[in-house]
Nucleic acid binder design. Structure first.
Length: 826
DNA sequence: GCAAGGTC
């Protein structure tokens, strides 16, 4: 029996399909698919199934000096036990094994991990390696016809990276976290990729903060030829004799304005016509896909998550790729033919089919990892996809069209005219050949009409305008520009860059979109710059890349590279010496600044956003325990302190981040006052803390406009029940005997009948009982079908189900994912 | 409870 090992299940299935000619059978064991046919078995891993870590005696942050990690041993342990076990079992009775992981450096390392697991189970089985850059009949067949050996040097290069990243990341993260006494969930992280990325954002913010705006003026006037008016802009020649539009002196601007106002006509001095070719774009790699999705309003993480779904469903190729050159195997004509079946694409396909030849554009990056992202011949119907999925699917399809289409042709027309001694210019552009724009509407093809004029012609001048402006600070990085910059610096990979940005949000380093750094982020970057400059610099990646290349080429060993790196880190810790307190003080001060709202109305100390032991947020006084002033915060989302201040209390406003239901809560003191005045109506004892602490349930309105039944001891007690957003709530005299609460009626103008909601606890319990599976985030319609088939038909079923058992029964669902849904269901 | 890199 020959055992074939791929990097992921999807690849295993497709390779089995190709090699077996469609005759492979699937067996599921331990939650892992094994494909089998004529003397062969194929199993897909899930990326890395083992990971590096320190031995357990290094796991306590307080017991081990961070500096000790610089010379700590590093071990490998399975991280995906079930896959590892199945792999070993299959390896034990294999006669040969073939590693068929992805054709890139990390794939070679994942291949070596598989190699070692196979060896452990079977010490004399021959193990070979096949390489192919797209899973097509030709490539796969020829790769398997001529297998190669694993490249252990290349894998070692990857291992060196793992070790260096772990040691640096863990040692410096622990150091900063301990110095600031932030060792719980809110530790302070540092790493080779995240920290230079954060520094990009921080540096930009520093430029913005240091920016000093300058006043300038721009002037415009309309020129008219035979009733066709077009806008022209004033310009002059500066000291270097180059054209300038910005006038820096107000007096000069006023003088030019006077000239334009007094001029009745302008004489055309020059007319220049040029045609410009506008080439179609290159095929999509991950970064360019994220950028294009970004211009449609999708964040990087969201775009990748949708792409992942489209890939898993078989509609597009693998979304994590560096490659911008289609493989030779790809037959555009055949794929176009398949895509013409979809009505939305039929017109574009016919346009392309009329071309004499179909030659795709090529980008600068040509790699072996995967093909560029393109649609497959497996078409979804519009109803299979959500609106967002369809929008991005169409983007991928149309990008594919664009890469096959003709260039566009533009005519640029530049007219310069003189109104007395003031020069005016206009730039027109006209699309002569629509080219790829006809099939790819995402790039602007706007025209700017300037009529045909001739030199010496006299044009009427009207409506002169003088606009006072100011120079603007540099723009912040948007997510996609950040990812492009990371790529150009070689920081991160196609699979991780968007995750890195999300990590910076999670760690409290950045807020908003485009991201802005917090005070904490500024302090972390400052500390790193002073003591461990390398870790916030993209040079660390560049140096490591050079070392990895050397290892891959046999010029250096893994030991040499990691030892050298350990020594550099050791020296950093020597220099850190006794600055620990000072660094910690600065970090703590910055953390406080991020949470500070303003003066406490009771004692004048700072009010801060704090977190209760149960994990909920509230506003508390820095003077605690002497001052016990508190204010509640909404129970949904994470609070962010905004720059804007409440005029009445001088407190900063608060925004609650909760994904798409993010809202501005405003000043917490105003909210508390409003709640106290209006809607706090006590209805009965709190079932959670009523007996022990006398807590009571009340109908309360939150600043966000939503209402709930909540405990009066909030935030100490977080018991709450949902209420409808609209309508007046009537408290009746009928009582629910079970819960000792009055029955409620909702009177909503929008509905004819009042809604007899009843006892709020009974109502909530009933709601939970009938809640559907698709109410839970992350369960799509297809997954729902599969779950139903496995007997999980309602949320109630889900709550009671055994996660492992469900994972075994349902294809493509892990126990972890089930537990995640269960957590959401509760 | 640290990193970054795979994949779900």
């Amino acid at each position: 029996m020959e055992l074939i090992i791929t990097e992921k299940d999807n690849a295993a299935r497709r390779i089995a399909d190709i090699l077996s000619g469609g005759g492979a059978s699937t067996e599921r064991s331990g939650g892992v698919n094994v494909y089998e046919w004529g003397g062969r078995r194929c199993i897909g891993l899930s990326g890395h199934v083992v990971g590096v870590d320190f031995p357990p005696e290094y796991s306590d942050w307080r017991d081990v000096e961070p500096a000790e990690l610089a010379h700590a041993p590093v071990t490998k342990t399975p991280t995906q036990e079930s896959i590892v076990n199945v792999l070993k079992r299959l390896a034990a009775d294999a006669d040969s094994a073939v590693i068929a992981t992805d054709y890139d450096r990390e794939g070679e390392l994942i291949g070596k991990e598989a190699y070692e697991l196979v060896r452990k189970a079977n010490d004399d089985v021959p193990i070979s390696r096949v390489r192919f850059s797209s899973i097509t009949e030709n490539e796969v067949q020829s790769a398997f016809a001529d297998p190669d050996d694993l490249d252990f040097d290349l894998a070692a290069a990857g291992e060196a990276r793992q070790i260096v990243d772990l040691i640096w990341g863990a040692a410096l993260t622990r150091f900063l976290s301990l110095s600031a006494r932030q060792v719980g969930d809110d530790f302070i992280s540092v790493g080779r990729v995240q920290s230079p990325t954060l520094k990009l954002i921080v540096d930009k913010e520093r430029e913005i903060e240091a920016f000093d705006p300058e006043d300038y003026w721009e002037l415009f006037a309309d020129l008219t030829k035979e009733e066709t008016a077009f806008e022209a802009q004033y310009f002059y020649l500066d000291e270097e004799d180059t054209e300038a539009e910005r006038v820096w002196d107000e007096g000069d601007a006023e003088a030019a304005f006077a000239t334009l106002r007094e001029a009745a006509s302008a004489v055309v001095e020059s007319v220049r016509r040029r045609t410009r070719t506008d080439d179609p774009p290159a095929p999509f790699n991950t970064t360019q896909f994220i950028r294009a999705a970004g211009s449609l309003g999708y964040g990087a993480g969201r775009a990748m998550s949708i792409a992942e779904d489209l890939y898993t469903a078989g509609y597009i190729t693998y979304p994590r790729t560096d490659n911008t050159v289609y493989p030779e195997d790809l037959d555009p004509a055949e794929l176009l033919d398949a895509l013409s079946a979809q009505r939305d694409f039929a017109d574009s396909v016919s346009l392309l089919q009329e071309l004499d030849e179909l030659e795709a554009t090529r980008g600068d990056e040509e790699t072996t990892d995967h093909p560029p992202i393109h649609p497959t011949s497996d078409l979804p119907s519009k109803s299979d996809l959500s609106e967002d999925e369809w929008e991005l699917y169409e983007l991928v399809v149309r990008r594919f069209f664009a890469t096959l289409a003709e260039p566009a042709e533009w005519e640029h027309l530049r007219v310069v005219a003189a109104a007395d001694d003031a020069s005016l210019k206009a730039n027109g552009r006209r699309l002569l050949e629509e080219g790829y724009h006809a099939v790819y509407p995402y790039f602007s093809a706007d025209e700017n009409h300037v009529p045909d004029v001739e030199e010496g012609e006299e044009l009427a001048v009207s409506d002169p305008r003088l606009e006072a402006k100011q120079t603007q600070p540099p723009r912040r990085y948007g997510q996609s520009r950040l990812i492009e910059t990371m790529e150009s610096l070689g920081v991160g990979t196609k699979s991780t860059r968007h995750n890195t940005i999300e990590k910076l949000y999670d760690r409290g380093y950045i807020e908003n979109d485009p991201p802005r750094p917090t005070r904490l982020a500024m302090a972390v970057v400052e500390a790193a710059e002073e003591y461990a400059d390398l870790v916030v610099s993209e040079e660390m990646t560049a140096d490591l890349e050079a070392d990895m290349t050397a290892i891959a080429e046999g010029e250096k060993t893994l030991e040499e590279v990691t030892e050298e790196s350990r020594e550099i880190l050791e020296r950093i810790f020597e220099e850190l010496g006794d600055s620990r307190e000072e660094i910690g003080e600065h970090l703590r001060e910055s953390l406080k600044a991020d949470k500070r709202l303003g003066p406490c109305p009771d004692c004048g100390e700072d009010l801060l956003v704090r977190r209760s032991r149960q994990g909920s947020y509230f506003v508390g006084c820095d003077g605690y325990p002497e001052c016990r002033f508190t204010l509640p915060l909404p129970s949904t989302g994470e609070p962010v302190v905004l720059d804007s201040e409440c005029e009445e209390h001088g407190l900063n406003e608060v925004k609650m981040l909760a994904g798409r239901s993010t809202f501005v809560h405003g000043c917490p003191l105003c909210a508390a006052e409003e709640a106290a005045e209006t809607e706090d109506r006590v209805i009965g004892p709190c079932p959670e803390c009523g007996e022990a602490h006398g807590g009571e349930l009340a109908i309360r309105k939150l600043q966000s406009g939503s209402r709930l039944v909540g405990c009066t001891r909030y935030p100490d007690c977080e018991y709450s029940l949902p209420l409808p957003r609209r309508g007046d709530i009537e408290i009746t005299d009928d009582y629910c005997e079970e819960h000792d609460l009055p029955e409620l009626i909702v009177h909503d103008e929008g509905s004819e009948e009042p809604w007899e909601l009843g006892c709020p606890i009974c109502n909530y319990e009933e709601y939970r009982a009938r809640q559907g599976l698709d109410d839970i985030e992350g369960i799509g319609s297809k997954t729902k079908e599969k779950l139903s088939a496995a007997g999980v038909e309602s949320v109630a079923d889900l709550r009671e189900a055994d996660a492992e058992a469900v994972a075994d029964d349902v294809d493509g669902v892990s126990a972890e994912r089930v537990r995640d849904w269960q957590a959401k269901a509760d």
